[in-house]
Structures are given as structure tokens and as C-alpha cells.
Write a protein that binds this DNA or RNA. Structure first.
Lengths: 334, 334
DNA sequence: TTGTAAGCGTTATCAC
DNA sequence: GTGATAACGCTTACAA
């Protein structure tokens, strides 16, 4: 590929002038500009981003560490949103492969050596040393669902409190009174806020809170299945249950079916996330929509703002959640 | 972050020597090596990949253009495989954001300006100009499901012929005789080979081929639904149907249910792909396993081989397919 | 075994 | 308006 030197030679000007044309400087005559543009066209020239990065100390690249799988629906939706925002700003997205065999490896070093302009992070707990390093290095970072703030660190999360609240409200309106909650890890932001939303929902409907109606499990089909199994053994089993992910809801439904009951005829199940999978499941899941794609977009937008404007103070964005009613919930029948 | 100069100063040697230590040259005394390593440790130094790229003309980066969504299960599984192979070789994966607003934009230019070492491509048809440019530019490229070969271009695909064949065989063994095929675009490699596998399956079981048992549609739920609708209107509707994706199978099942029939009691449905979704669907799908993750891994492995060894001739890798029997197919009953 | 210096393709400063 | 030239952080002849 032609370099700036060849363009300069072809156009009969200096490299400095070519650079000015490329970067739209005003102090270049339209005559020279034309000559240069013609040469660029002719040589099919494209500036070398690597060389540019070296001098500008910017790479127009956002980094990401994927500690989970692309097949995780939450992640793939998030990425679709993130990608959208990056495309709009012409940033490329770099998936950094962690070199775990090297004991000295750190995320921060990797980011710096790659010269990424910013990072999007999620799926690790907030005490992870890699996060704290990044925060300290003042690398522009947007966290997803991790309430960590720093001079160059912001986060986006969903309105999980309200989401859970809406789930309870929905079940109450359908006549349910024994409403259980299958939670993920209560130590994390997401777990905590959903739990408090659940409690608030009960309270505002003057329903009593029972410890045995709360089960903590992994955010998986298996987790939902195990939790529901336990709930079904209660002397007074719940007639409605809020799960903390769509996968959990699927597991719960499986457990319910296994003992010969039907969803939603005997028990109503509410999912969480509204991943694309909620609509493919049978029955289609009533679920709390987190707007995951929007979360990803917002993360990207804020990150780019932070990168391009050092004065932009790291935001806390809480994306609204709403309830999507489908077929896994129904009227309470005794 | 410290540069190589600061390390050199700290260690009391020249930058050339530091470079030699970093790159494991043998002609450096262990004494100097120690000094340098100590300085590296002390300053928490990490070589700048950007600067290195500039001189080496290599970036340890593989590029990708995503023309579809991360939420597409086929794609996310492919990416999980690709990522695995890149991690093993410490390459990072760059998602290139196509700048469609710029009329001069081309994939090739983007790759070159970013100095990516190679590219993985899929999801576009083989006449796409971007592909041909890349091929001509002799950029190491692995195609997925696109049979395009060049001096630096290879591809990986699944054994779709055998896959479709196995699907027919399975239905025949269950006693089915009226077996339909819901195909994707017959102009593409994948569509063609599956179709020929279907025909071969019929032939080797001495079953007649009927044009009206073949429907062409998009690889979506909607597509499967529409195709199945048409098949159900036939005077002699099929008792078994091979779909060209798991999503199509879901759509077909929906259409079957809609007229009050059940899967697999009345009609057996075979999916294609064996994405993670096949197991979540109800009923769980009998499907042809493409080993998508393996395809992704193989693409990555071959690409890296091509990059690191100019003599490695671009491969054609056909990943074996097999049948996974679950609950959407059953014995034929009149 | 070590160091000097040119060069990778840009941008930016400062003369002209 | 335009052009030399140093600099970005590294690798690599080649000289010492």
C-alpha cells in the first residue's frame, strides 16, 4: 500500500502538505488540495492507522475482555448495542485475548501496550484486581452492571429495582399472593437491587415477606431448575415466581413440568432480561426487559464521550426496565 | 507507561540491548539480561505493540467484519471457536466497523490501514466485491462456508452433504417415506451441498424425488414457518421434514402446531446446525450438528498458520457433521 | 557482547 | 501556503 511519501511525490508536494490535506487543515490552497486528492485517488492511498496511533497516542480502538462466551445471550445482545455505537463513531472493537499463561499478565498492561483508547468491562466482580488497576491507570472505562466509579470510570446498569418491582406488581394484579424470587448472587449490584425491588413490590401490596420464598442460585437453566425444585417442596408452594434470568425461568418451568404441573395454569413464571431467547421459549416468557442492547449502546456512547473529552465526567447511566407480558404468566386459580 | 528508552536508562544499557532481551536474542550475557529484566520489572514495562507493528509490519491482530448480529447463534458459536484459537496463539481479534457513509470505503483498505495480519469472513455471497479485493490484495483470509480459494485465501465449511444425507437416513429408519426438504438459498455452497445430500439420501433408499417436497426460504423462524405452511397444503403432505437451520425447524413446528398437529407424533422435524438453541427449544430438536465452534477454531488455526508461514498453502477444511437425535423426530405412524 | 543509527508511516512545530 | 525535520517507540543492520 502506498505511503504518504509516495502520495507526496506523486502530487509534487511535501508529506506535511499531504498530511494537512488528509486531516482537513484549512491552510492549504484548494489547488494543492486537488492535486493531493487526485494522487490519493490514483494510488488508492489509505493512511496507516498504526503510524498515526504512534504519534497521536490514540488508536480509535475500544478494548474488551470477554470472560464469558459469545453464545451467552446477554453478552451477544450487549455486543450488538456496543457495536452499533462504535460504528457510528468509527471506532473498532478489539477483543483482547488474555494471556493467562504469563504470570505477569494484566489487563491494564495489555490495554496500554495495544494503545486502546478505552475499555468496556463486565462479568467480573468488583473486587477483581484487573478492574482496580484499570481504574487506577485512569484508562477510560465503562463498566456494565458493576457500580464502580473513578476519575475515568463510569458504569451503566438497568433499573433492576424497578424491574423486579414490576414483576411482582404484575403477578399481584393476576391475583397471586404467594410470590417467590429466584435470585442470582446477592453480593452483586444486580442481585441486591432486584432483591430490594422484589421486597418493595411485596410491601407496597401489603404482602408478607418470607425468607423461604427467596432462593439464590446461578444464572443458568440448571440454577433455575434447582431453585424451583426447592420451592416446590414447600408446604405452601408459591403460585408465582420471579426468576433472575430467562434461562433461570426455563429451568424453573422444567422443574414445574416435571411434577406434572403446567405453566401458567398452575404456576406463573416471570423471567428477567428479555433476551431474544425469551420469545423462542415455550411458553413464550413473560419477562422483565432490561434493554440490554440499549445498555451496550449507552456504554459505547459514554465511553467515546469520555475518550474524546477529558472533562466529561464518568457517568452513571441507569437504563429503564419494563415488563413484557407473554405466555408464562396467567390469572391465579385456586 | 515506561518506554524502552527508560528501561535502557534504568538498566544502564542501550535500547538495542533491551530490545534483544525482550525478544529473547541469544547474544546477550546473562548478567545484562538480568539487569534489564530487573529494570523491566521495576518500571512495569510492557512493549508497545503499536510501535512494534509499525516496524515489523505485523500486528498480531486478526480482523473481522460482522455483517450480521452477535445474537445470531451461528455467529456467536463460530466466534467462540475463533476466539479460542486466537487465544491459544495470543492474537487479538479486531471487529472492524465498516464506514458505510464513505463511498471510497473498502474492507481491504480498512484492513491494510489497520495492519491486520489476516481476516476471517462469512455471511456474504461470494461475488461480493470486498471479498474479491481482499483476495487480490493477497491478505491472508479464511472464509466460512464460501468456497473461494486464492493464493492466500482458504475456507472452512461443514460436511453439509453428509449432514443432509444423515437427516434423510434417520427419517427413513423411523419409517418415513414422504420426506421434504426446507432449503435456504440454493445459489450458495451450503444450500447446494445440502440439497444434493438430501437427494442422495432419497436415492440410496430408493425413494422418489418430488419437486414439491423442496421449499426454498430464508434461514429464519419466519422462513421455516412459511415453507412448512406450503408443504402442509400438499394433498400428500410429508411426514418428515429436514430444515436448513434450527430456527427454520422452530418455524416449521409452529406451522404444524397451528393446524392442530403435533411434533413428532404426526410429523417429524429435523433441524440443521445444532446451535445451543436446539437444546432449549420445545421439543428439543433432532438436528444435524455442524460443529460450528470447531469450524471457528479451525478457521482461526489455519489463518494463523497462513500468517506465520507464507508457504502454508490455503486449506479447504471440511468439518465433519453428525446427527444429534432429540425429541422432534419419531417413528412414522399412519 | 554491546551500542549506534537508520527506518517504519505518521503528525506537528517552526521556518520560509 | 508550503516544506524541512524532529518525534512517536520500536527493530535491526552493522560497527565497535
Amino acid at each position: 500500500m502506498a505511503s504518504i511519501h509516495e502520495v507526496a511525490k506523486q502530487a509534487g508536494v511535501s508529506v506535511a502538505t499531504v498530511s494537512k490535506v488528509i486531516n482537513n487543515y484549512s491552510d492549504v490552497s484548494s489547488k494543492t488540495r486537488n492535486k493531493v486528492n487526485k494522487a490519493i485517488e490514483l494510488l488508492n492511498y489509505q493512511p496507516n492507522v498504526v503510524a498515526r496511533s504512534l504519534v497521536k497516542k490514540r488508536s480509535w480502538t475500544v478494548g474488551m475482555f470477554l470472560l464469558d462466551f459469545f453464545t451467552n445471550p446477554f453478552i451477544s445482545e450487549l455486543l450488538d448495542g456496543l457495536r452499533k455505537s462504535l460504528e457510528d463513531s468509527s471506532y473498532d472493537l478489539l477483543f483482547l485475548s488474555p494471556n493467562l499463561s504469563n504470570p505477569d499478565y494484566t489487563f491494564t498492561k495489555h490495554c496500554i501496550s495495544r494503545n486502546v483508547d478505552g475499555v468496556v468491562m463486565f462479568g467480573v466482580d468488583r473486587t477483581n484486581q484487573n478492574f482496580l488497576d484499570l481504574l487506577q491507570a485512569e484508562m477510560p472505562t465503562m463498566m456494565i452492571d458493576i457500580d464502580l466509579l473513578g476519575p475515568r470510570t463510569g458504569y451503566v446498569t438497568a433499573d433492576n429495582r424497578r424491574g423486579a418491582y414490576l414483576g411482582v406488581q404484575h403477578l399481584v394484579e393476576l391475583g397471586h399472593k404467594r410470590i417467590a424470587f429466584i435470585s442470582g448472587d446477592l453480593g452483586c449490584l444486580v442481585g441486591q437491587t432486584r432483591f430490594s425491588g422484589y421486597q418493595e413490590g411485596l410491601r407496597s401490596n401489603e404482602l408478607p415477606y418470607y425468607d423461604q420464598y427467596v432462593e439464590v442460585e446461578e444464572y443458568s437453566i440448571e440454577g433455575g431448575y434447582k431453585a424451583m425444585k426447592r420451592l416446590l417442596q414447600l408446604s405452601e408452594a408459591p403460585s408465582g415466581v420471579i426468576c433472575s434470568s430467562d434461562y433461570m425461568a426455563t429451568g424453573a418451568i422444567e422443574a414445574i413440568r416435571e411434577i406434572g404441573m403446567r405453566v401458567p395454569d398452575h404456576i406463573s413464571v416471570v423471567g428477567f432480561d428479555n433476551t431474544f431467547y425469551a420469545e423462542l421459549s415455550m411458553p413464550k416468557l413473560t419477562t422483565i426487559n432490561q434493554n440490554i442492547t440499549l445498555m451496550g449502546m449507552k456504554a459505547g456512547e459514554h465511553l467515546i464521550r469520555m475518550i474524546e473529552n477529558p472533562d466529561y465526567s464518568p457517568p452513571t447511566e441507569i437504563v429503564p426496565a419494563n415488563l413484557v407480558v407473554r405466555d408464562s404468566t396467567g390469572q391465579y386459580k385456586e
